[in-house]
Amino acid sequence: MIEHGRGATANRASQRFNLPAREEDGDWLDERDAIDGGPPRLRTTVTVEQPRTIITRNQSPDIGFDRSINPYRGCEHGCVYCFARPTHAYLDLSPGLDFESRLFAKPDAAALLRAELSRPSYRVERIALGTNTDPYQPIEGDWRITRSIVEVLADTRHPLTITTKSDRVVRDADLLGRMAADGLAAVVLSLTSLDPQTARTLEPRAPHPRRRLAAIRALTDAGVPTYVSLAPVIPAINDHEMEAILAAAAEAGALGAFFLPVRLPHEVAPLFRAWLDAHHPDRAGRVMAIIQSMRGGRDNDPDFHSRMRGQGPWADLLRTRFTIARRRLGLGGIGIPLRCDLFVPPEKDGQMRLL
């Protein structure tokens, strides 16, 4: 059964960590039985998480940053292809519907960030927001954790990049514009389709494509360098829109663009296969065959560098089309130069900054 307004079609638990299969709880069954015509809509819940640190570090050689912040775990946008879905398995939750409905928020993020930035040993490099789950997903409207993080980074003049699918980022254009004027901020808007029906099934709770294009324009007008991400490009699903998406982004004021072929790590592959069977049964086999041709005969290629590029004739064709369209439209690449020499450490334990 397809859950209306959600991306995943199943909620099976991961077996990679010897987790037991999930069972529907009694309250859910009671509520379902009390309603005529089927089960109720799946509700989003938010649990407070209290980590000891907030900056996550990585040493991946094919990623252009070494630190990031994730204000939330899970993502209500429900993008079926999301490579972050398997992280919910660490919480004994399903990478399926649990990932997009059982969310975790970190309200102490700003305080933790101030503490980490105030350490004498801290060395400045840009911090990336939106690398795992979307920092401007719907619950940010109430929790405003991302806003509090940006406030800290603006106050300390720390470089920042944001990747998001949400036009909610425009709410923080006052801070981002101020930072961008000093070469400290840039935003990447993810846009995978201009077709509302495709977007509705691929990313059921993400903003309409028109709103994302409007966000590119609004951020550009506010002086924020804004780029567009075509990630992922899925053969026989949205690859035919590549040139049109780039043209629309350029018209909206985007400075540059990049794309990534679809990745299907761990539990994402079976979720994506189930999504294809539900929404595109006529081409499911063809889509998976092309994906496997780009991934060395597998559903996913986990190797550094090749995981971001793909291989074979299909991957080469996508890169050629993208490069031709990007250059024709005058769009740059995704190299985002930001300054790291303006950083001012925050106050620590009530002590004033040293001038």
Rank of each mutant, 00 (worst) to 15 (best):
E116V: 01
L117S: 06
L117R: 14
S118D: 08
S118Q: 07
P120N: 11
S121G: 01
S121F: 08
S121Y: 04
Y122F: 15
Y122S: 01
Y122N: 04
Y122R: 14
R123A: 14
R123D: 05
R123E: 14
V124N: 13
E125H: 14
E125M: 13
E125Y: 09
R126S: 12
R126P: 11
A128Y: 03
L129E: 00
G130H: 10
T131D: 12
T131L: 12
T133Y: 04
T133G: 11
P135L: 01
P135I: 02
P138E: 01
I139E: 08
E140H: 14
E140R: 12
G141P: 02
G141M: 07
G141Y: 08
W143S: 08
W143V: 08
R144L: 06
R144K: 15
I145T: 10
T146E: 00
S148P: 02
S148Y: 03
S148I: 02
E151P: 06
E151R: 15
L153G: 01
D155R: 12
D155C: 05
T156K: 12
T156H: 14
T156V: 02
R157Y: 07
R157I: 00
R157V: 00
H158D: 04
P159A: 02
T161P: 00
I162H: 08
I162V: 15
I162M: 10
T163Q: 15
T164W: 13
T164F: 14
T164S: 06
T164K: 09
K165G: 01
S166I: 06
S166M: 04
D167K: 08
R168Q: 08
V169Y: 08
V169N: 04
V169Q: 07
V170I: 13
V170S: 09
R171N: 07
R171H: 13
D172I: 11
A173D: 06
L175R: 14
G177Y: 09
G177L: 11
R178L: 11
M179T: 04
M179Q: 11
A180H: 07
A180F: 05
D182E: 15
A186V: 11
V188D: 06
L189F: 02
T192E: 01
S193I: 05
L194T: 03
P196Y: 03
P196V: 06
P196C: 03
T198C: 03
A199E: 03
A199R: 11
A199D: 01
A199C: 04
R200H: 11
T201F: 02
T201V: 13
L202D: 00
L202M: 15
E203Q: 12
P204Q: 09
R205P: 01
A206T: 04
A206D: 01
P207F: 01
R210Q: 13
R210K: 11
R211I: 02
R212W: 05
R212T: 02
R212G: 01
R212I: 10
L213N: 04
L213S: 03
A214Q: 12
A215V: 06
A215Y: 04
A215D: 00
A218T: 11
A218H: 03
A218C: 07
L219P: 03
D221L: 09
A222P: 00
V224I: 09
V224T: 05
P225R: 15
P225L: 15
P225N: 13
T226V: 15
T226R: 08
